[in-house]
């Protein structure tokens, strides 16, 4: 692909969120790309994990089978059946080869797909709508996910096109990606949001499915090869995983040589649990909550060590 004209390149996204104010500097639009190499138990965007387009069902919005049976009638594979409480039951295994658009008949958006294929041009057209706000606030586009760099060509093409349109960019990464892609993203982006979840490889693997080795190696290389890049490191504080002084201290040790890096903690919240249910899954973390006192003491630790 010719890197200067890849606006017809496309990828799968699951949301474009305007007026985001917690995902980089200024007023931003976040483009959520689908697909992630990690499987964090606490993920608040479970719809981001698989790269493929997925069927989701929001029981709260469903009108109930006495009012509407449109999707049942639409489905020819027997994947949708009548369940209890007026709700439908979906056997997603039967959807694999299906090309019927059952979500289009749902009047209330109870049945939706997570994920839609969009070209670079289409995404940027939406992103550019808020360009005046970016110009005034120092904001821009943030690529998030999932892991945006998993759809590497698409992500890089988005960054190039944003640059051409003079839109500021940020990339949010889990770090578990090919170095070449990350390296190129660092060249293109204005801000990098890098998640460090745990330093210990085994603990990291237990919580996310992969070890921390590649992530820490990539972090070190970013620091080495892109010393001037604006980097913000974030740690989601997860009960039972890293909500202890030792875990956070270890991350602070990694960051110690890099005083220019901004660091913040993101307290765990369980607002994603609903989306697991929409996908027909149980939320792995259940009802666990983060202890406010612990969170506060970790915040103090960070403040003490990074000023």
């Amino acid at each position: 692909m010719n890197p200067t004209d890849d606006t017809n390149g496309n990828g799968i996204i699951f949301n474009i969120q305007k007026y985001s104010v917690h995902d980089g500097p200024g007023i931003r639009t976040v483009v959520f790309l689908k697909g992630c190499p990690l499987r964090c138990e606490w993920c608040s965007n479970p719809e981001s994990q698989a790269t493929r387009i997925q069927l989701a069902y929001n029981t709260g919005r469903c009108l109930g089978l006495s009012q509407c049976v449109r999707c049942v009638e639409m489905c020819l594979s027997g994947a949708i059946s009548r369940g209890e409480d007026e709700r439908i039951v979906i056997d997603r295994a039967l959807c694999a080869e299906c090309t019927r658009d059952c979500t289009s008949v749902c009047p209330s958006n109870a049945l939706i797909t997570y994920g839609v294929r969009r070209t670079v041009r289409e995404v940027l057209r939406t992103v550019e709508q808020d360009s005046l706000f970016y110009a005034r606030s120092g904001g821009g586009m943030t690529l998030s996910g999932g892991e945006p760099l998993m759809q590497g060509d698409f992500a890089l093409a988005l960054l190039r096109e944003a640059r051409k349109r003079r839109i500021g960019t940020a990339v949010e990464t889990c770090g578990h990606v090919q170095w070449e892609t990350l390296d190129e993203a660092c060249r293109l982006t204005r801000t990098l949001l890098f998640d460090l979840k745990h330093v210990d490889p085994a603990r990291h693997e237990a919580g996310t499915g992969v070890t921390s080795t590649l992530i820490l190696e990539n972090f070190r290389r970013v620091m080495e090869h892109h010393p001037k890049l604006h980097v913000m490191v974030r740690t989601p504080v997860i009960p039972g995983f890293n909500d202890d002084e030792a875990a956070i201290s270890a991350i602070l040790d990694v960051l110690a040589p890099y005083p220019h890096v901004e660091y913040s903690l993101l307290p765990y919240h369980r607002l994603g649990t609903q989306k697991y249910h929409f996908l027909g899954r149980e939320a792995p973390m259940g009802e666990v909550k983060l202890d406010d006192k612990r969170m506060a003491s970790l915040s103090r630790l960070v403040a003490a060590r990074r000023g």
């Binding site: 949301n15 608040s44 965007n45 709260g60 949010e172 919240h269 369980r270 607002l271 609903q274 989306k275």
Partner: peptide, 22 residues
């Protein structure tokens, strides 16, 4: 809209329990 870093959802789509939490 509930806007939290890296996450967003419509308030009314959350379960009553999560709404109370918020």
């Amino acid at each position: 809209i509930v806007r939290i870093a890296g996450y967003s959802a419509y308030f009314v789509d959350l379960s009553p329990d999560l709404q109370n939490d918020l």
